[in-house]
Design a protein around this nucleic acid. Structure first.
Lengths: 345, 345
DNA sequence: GTTAGCACTCACTCAAAGAGAGTGCTAATA
DNA sequence: TATTAGCACTCTCTTTGAGTGAGTGCTAAC
C-alpha cells in the first residue's frame, strides 16, 4: 500500500510527465508548491516507487518516467474528472445542432470534433448495420444474369448487393421472391437474415419450385452481411504531433495499425459498457506498445449502439480524454436513440 | 540543343539517381561501361548540364542530382518503355480472374496490386457516379416526416438519400411521385437528374398540385449528386519507405495531401487522355514539391471512365510506373466496359 | 577535343571535453 | 526518527576539432 506522500509524488510525476514529455527529476518536483518536500526526500520516495514498479528511469542518472504499471495505477486510482469548459461543451453539442437525420454524418462529425478537442486521433465505429431491421426489400434486374438486391432498414440505411441469377429466369419469379421476402422478413434483424432466408427456403419452397429455390441460394450468399465495421477517423495525423512518434518507423507502424483497426478483434467489441482504457502492451500489439487507447461505448439501456476510441501516446492526457468521452458518449446515446427509436430525452 | 554525349550523361545520371537516391559523381559515372569517358570529361559535361538547368548540386562539392527541369526533360524525351515480366502481367490480370461484377471491388483490388508492383502509393478514382444512368427509382418512407430515396443505376450502383417530407402527406402522393419519376427519368444521367426533376416539376406539376410540387423540391435538394469522388488507396504507407520522407514533417504533409486528394481540383479531372506526369512543383502544392504524380485514365473511346494515380518521390521509377500503368489502364478499360456496357474484346 | 593532375571544398564521422541535470549515499538537523 | 543538506558520481547532450573521402574546377599536357 502506498503512503499518502507516495501517492502525491506518483500523481504529480505522472501529471508532469504527461504535460512535458520529459523525465521528471526530484529537484524539479520539489519546486512545485503542491510538493512541500526537499529533493532528497523526493528522491527517496521515488526510489521506493521505482522499486515497486510504478516509475522507471530512462538511464541511470535520468529523472523518472511512469511505467505502464504506474499509468495503470494512476488511471485506476487517481483519475479525477476534468472540468470541461462551456465553450467546449458547446462545440460537442454543435454536432446535433443541424438536426441531421443521417446517422453516418453525425458519427463522422463526432469523430472530427472529439479529435479536435483532444488533439489525438479518434476512431469511431459506425452503427452496427446488423442490428438494424429490414424495412423494405427489393430487387432490380441489371442484365440477363445479374440483379441487385436492396434492403432498406428502419434506420434509413440502405444495403445493396449484386448477385447472379441462374439461367432461364422470368420476371415473375423475381416478383414472387420479392413479395415472399417482404411478406415474411420485414422486421427481421439484418444479421438474422441469412438464417431466416434459409427457413423460408425450406418451409415454403421445398415442395414448390426448384428454380426459385436455386435463386434463393444465390441471393442468400450475397446477403450474408459480414460484420464489416465501417470506421470513421478523426484527425488521423494528430498522432504524429506527439514527440514519441518522431521516428518514421514508429509513425508507420501505428498508421498501419490504425488502417487495420477494424480487423483487430477486441478494440471495439467490448463486453463492458462505459469507458475503458488500454495502456501500452495491454493493446496486445507491438506497434501499440507506446500507445494507449481509450474507448467509450454509447447506446440506450442494455443495447450498445457503437463506440468511440481515442488513440494517443501512453503519456496521453487521460483526465481530459475521459471527461470528454463521457460527455460525448452521453450526448450520442441521447441523440442517436432519439433519431433511431423516436425516444425523447 | 543537347549533344549526344550530354544526352547520354543526363540519362545515366537520372537513372542512377533514381536507383540509388545518392548524388552521382563523375568518377562513379565513368566506371559504368555505357559511359566511355574519363571523369574529367564527364565533369565538364555535367557542368554544362548544370548551367542549362538540368542538374544541380546539393552543396558545392557534391555529386549532381537531377533538377525538376532535368526530370521533365528525361520524362519527355528519354522514356523508353520497360519490359514488364509475364509474371507481373499475370498479377495484373488476376484482378479480373474471378469475373467480379462489382466495379468497386475491381477498382479496390487494382489499387492494391498496382501499389504492390510499383512499391509506391496508388490512388484510384471510383467510377464517376454521375455518368451512370437511372435504372429504377423508389422511395421508402421511414417516419411521418422523412423518407429515403433510392436510385439504382444501370451499372448496379445504388445511390440513396434521406430527405424530409412536408407535413400532411399521403402514401398515395408518394406513390404518384415514384411513378412519375420512373416513367420520365429512367435512362437519365445522374448528373442531369436535378435539372430533369426541375423540368418535370414545371411542365407536369404546375397546373396540378402544389403539395406534390413542394415534395419534389425537397427531394430535388437531396438528390443533387455532388461530384464527391470516392477514392481508393493502395499501399498508403508505401511512400514512407522512400528515404526522402524520413522526416516526420514531410511524411505528415504528404499523408495530409493524400487524405484530401479528392478535394484538390485537377488531380484526376484530366482533359487529356492517356498518361500524364506531374513533377514536383507542377503539382501546385508545397507538400508535393518533392513528389511526382503519374496519372493514367481509362475508358472506351471518348468516354473517360476513371483514373489511376501513382504517388512517389520525384526520384521515382518513371519507366516502370508508366509501363505498368499503360498495361493496367488498358486492362481496366477493357474489363469495365465489358461489365458496364456488355462490350466484348 | 580529351584527359591527367592538383588544389580545394564540403559533409560526415569520431573522439574528447565540458555543461547540465539527475542520482545514491552519508551525515547533520529538527 | 523522519527529513534534509552536501557531495561524489553518472549519464546525456552539445560543442569542437581533426581526419577521411568523395566530389569539384581549373590548368596544362596529350
Amino acid at each position: 500500500m502506498l503512503t499518502n506522500r507516495q501517492l502525491l509524488i506518483l500523481q504529480v510525476t505522472v501529471d508532469d510527465f504527461i504535460e512535458t514529455a520529459q523525465p521528471v527529476g526530484s529537484r524539479q518536483l520539489s519546486k512545485k508548491e503542491e510538493v512541500p518536500f526537499s529533493p532528497a526526500t523526493i528522491r527517496n520516495e521515488m526510489a521506493d516507487l521505482e522499486e515497486m514498479g510504478f516509475l522507471e528511469k530512462t538511464h541511470t542518472s535520468s529523472g523518472r518516467v511512469p511505467s505502464q504499471k504506474g499509468y495503470r495505477y494512476y488511471v485506476d486510482n487517481m483519475l479525477t474528472p476534468q472540468r470541461i469548459s462551456q465553450n467546449e461543451i458547446k462545440q460537442i453539442r454543435s454536432i446535433f445542432e443541424e438536426r441531421k437525420v443521417e446517422t453516418e454524418q453525425i458519427i463522422r462529425k463526432s469523430a472530427e470534433i472529439i479529435s479536435e478537442l483532444t488533439n489525438y486521433t479518434s476512431i469511431m465505429l459506425g452503427l452496427d448495420v446488423r442490428k438494424h431491421r429490414v424495412k423494405r426489400f427489393s430487387i432490380v434486374p441489371l442484365s440477363s444474369d445479374s440483379a441487385v438486391a436492396i434492403i432498406v432498414t428502419d434506420s434509413g440505411h440502405v444495403e445493396n448487393r449484386i448477385f447472379s441469377i441462374p439461367e432461364n429466369f422470368h420476371a415473375s419469379d423475381i416478383e414472387r421472391m420479392i413479395n415472399l421476402i417482404n411478406e415474411r422478413l420485414v422486421g427481421v434483424y439484418l444479421h438474422e437474415l441469412p438464417a431466416m432466408l434459409e427457413t423460408v427456403t425450406t418451409t415454403v419452397l421445398h415442395q414448390n419450385n426448384g428454380r426459385l429455390n436455386h435463386l434463393f441460394g444465390s441471393l442468400n450468399q450475397a446477403l450474408t452481411i459480414e460484420h464489416e465495421d465501417k470506421v470513421y477517423y478523426g484527425g488521423k495525423l494528430q498522432i504524429l504531433n506527439q514527440p514519441e512518434f518522431n521516428d518514421v518507423e514508429k509513425a508507420r507502424s501505428i498508421m498501419n495499425w490504425m488502417d487495420h483497426v477494424n480487423q483487430i478483434p477486441g478494440i471495439f467489441h467490448l463486453d463492458k459498457k462505459g469507458i475503458q482504457i488500454r495502456i501500452g502492451s495491454e493493446n496486445n500489439d507491438l506497434a501499440m506498445e507506446s500507445c494507449s487507447v481509450i474507448t467509450a461505448s454509447y447506446g440506450i439501456g442494455k443495447e450498445q449502439m457503437g463506440s468511440i476510441a481515442i488513440i494517443g501516446p501512453t503519456r496521453m492526457d487521460y483526465r481530459r480524454v475521459v471527461s470528454l468521452l463521457d460527455i460525448m458518449s452521453g450526448d450520442l446515446s441521447r441523440e442517436l436513440s432519439r433519431i433511431l427509436h423516436g425516444h425523447h430525452g
